[in-house]
């Protein structure tokens, strides 16, 4: 199937067309920032630089009810609270780094054990990936090999080429969407513009540091004095955990009524930076030290994930740096470790 184009003026109509078949989620403006949310055609903002929360929240929500229980006359009844979507979902406008982040979550939630809540939502979502308009000042996908474009992980890949969007299919579902009447065949000129756009982004994303071998360097520097200042500077607020496309830690909580006869169990985002993250019954805290928690997140992204999955689990989206109240910059850490 040939690549297609859609004139920008038809974008809102495309969204409304897709909404006939799907629940459409995309970037929209909320006050001064951009978020992923359910959208109508007039709300979509494909010029967004980044969002606060990555689209992982669609597959791994902040609070996800797992099941409910009811105690009655000595009996207990359980009910699975797994969502059953009436319509498939379609996520439009997800940037390449965030798609790569989902590949990491696929490994975490679909490995030896399968998380049915995550996998259901993941498997029932069509993905339209969007090449970024501009890198933000915090982006480093070039270093992590997660952008500016990707080869897989999408049903459609779209690029802004001026007055139109360039679409290429990555699956049969994507091809079917391109059969809609307002899509036109892409010309050689469109293709040239598309390639030029990617080239332009590659030139802008010229980070002066590399990720290759950082896992080995980190092994050597586990007890290095380098970490002390970061442990002092970090306020351990957990913001970097929550905005990260690959942070997957969660806790399991019970919400009960006052008498405890009814309630539900919930899977909720947690952060390894929080003080009681590794506290066990009896009061022993395996991560009582600030350094232990600050290092864990960095090592998990750039060292442990390599041992576990053979890939780095930092995708270079820059959110942890952008939203850090203590202005800790993960790029600076990578650079320092690489310099040795």
């Amino acid at each position: 199937m040939k690549d297609k184009i859609l004139e920008k003026k038809n974008l809102a109509r495309l969204i409304e067309h897709l909404r006939e078949k799907y629940e459409v989620v995309g970037p929209k403006k909320k006050e001064d920032v951009f978020i992923f949310d359910y959208i109508h055609g007039d709300e979509i903002r494909l010029d967004y630089p980044t969002t606060i929360l990555p689209p992982k929240k669609l597959f791994f929500p902040q609070r996800e009810p797992l099941y409910s229980y009811e105690k009655k006359n000595g009996e207990v009844a359980l009910k699975d609270l797994m969502k059953k979507w009436t319509k498939k979902h379609l996520l439009i406008g997800i940037h390449p780094c965030d798609v790569m982040g989902l590949f990491i979550l696929d490994k975490e939630f679909g490995g030896d054990f399968k998380d049915p809540y995550y996998l259901y939502q993941r498997q029932n979502t069509v993905m339209i990936c969007l090449i970024c308009k501009e890198p933000t000042e915090h982006c480093f996908c070039d270093v992590m090999n997660t952008g500016p474009t990707i080869e897989e992980g999408y049903d459609l890949l779209m690029v802004d080429i001026g007055d139109r969007y360039y679409f290429q299919p990555g699956s049969e579902v994507g091809q079917e969407i391109l059969e809609w009447e307002l899509f036109k065949n892409a010309t050689d000129e469109d293709k040239r513009k598309r390639d030029a756009k990617v080239g332009e982004l590659e030139n802008k994303l010229c980070s002066r540091f590399k990720s290759e071998g950082i896992d080995k360097k980190l092994r050597e520097r586990f007890n290095d004095e380098l970490w002390g200042p970061y442990a002092e500077k970090c306020v351990l607020c957990g913001a970097c955990n929550f905005v990260c496309p690959t942070c997957h830690c969660f806790t399991i909580e019970d919400e009960t009524n006052l008498t405890g006869t009814e309630g539900r169990r919930v899977k909720a985002w947690d952060a390894c930076h929080f003080k009681n993250f590794a506290l066990i019954a009896g009061g022993l805290n395996f991560r009582g030290q600030r350094t232990s928690r600050v290092k864990l997140r960095i090592y998990d992204k750039l060292c442990y994930s390599m041992e576990r999955h053979g890939v780095y689990s930092c995708v270079g989206c820059g959110r942890c740096t952008e939203f850090c109240p203590a202005r800790i910059d993960i790029r600076e850490i990578i650079e320092k470790v690489q310099k040795g």
Binding site: C249, F250, T251, D270, A278
Partner: peptide, 15 residues
Amino acid sequence: ERMMKCGMGMCGHCS
């Protein structure tokens, strides 16, 4: 001994 919340290597607490 660690804080094993999920038991399945997903929740991260027992690393």
